[in-house]
Simulated scan of single mutants.
Amino acid sequence: MSELPAYAEVHLGPQGRVVIPASLRRSLGLEAGDILIARLEAGRLVLEKQETIKHRLKARFSHIPKDISLANDLLAERREEAKKEFSE
Results as ranks from 00 to 15, higher is better:
G16N: 03
D67V: 12
E88D: 13
E41H: 09
V18K: 06
A71R: 15
E51C: 04
P14D: 15
R44W: 08
H55N: 14
G33R: 08
I68Q: 02
R26L: 12
G43V: 02
G16T: 05
E51Q: 08
F61V: 05
A38L: 10
R39L: 03
L24M: 10
M1S: 11
L30G: 02
I35E: 14
Q15F: 08
R60W: 04
L12I: 15
L75P: 05
A59C: 07
A22D: 08
E9L: 14
A71G: 07
A71H: 12
G16W: 03
S23P: 05
A22P: 02
G29C: 00
G33W: 02
A22C: 01
H55P: 05
L12D: 05
K66Y: 11
A6V: 10
A8M: 13
G13M: 06
N72H: 14
L30F: 10
L45R: 04
A22H: 06
I37H: 08
R39W: 08
A71S: 11
L36R: 01
L75V: 07
E31F: 07
L24V: 14
D34M: 00
K49V: 08
L4G: 03
P65V: 14
S27G: 10
L74E: 07
E88Y: 13
L24D: 04
K84L: 14
E3D: 12
L30I: 09
E85W: 10
A82D: 11
I64M: 04
E51F: 01
I53N: 00
E77Q: 14
I35Y: 12
E31V: 14
E9T: 14
D67I: 09
E3F: 07
R39A: 09
K84S: 11
Q15I: 05
I64L: 01
K84E: 08
H11A: 14
A32E: 15
Y7I: 10
L30A: 01
Y7G: 06
H63M: 12
A6E: 15
E31S: 13
D34Q: 03
I53H: 03
A76V: 04
A82I: 14
R56G: 01
K83A: 15
P65M: 09
E51Y: 04
I35V: 15
I64G: 03
K54R: 13
R56Q: 11
L70C: 06
L40F: 13
L36H: 02
R78E: 08
V10Y: 05
A42C: 06
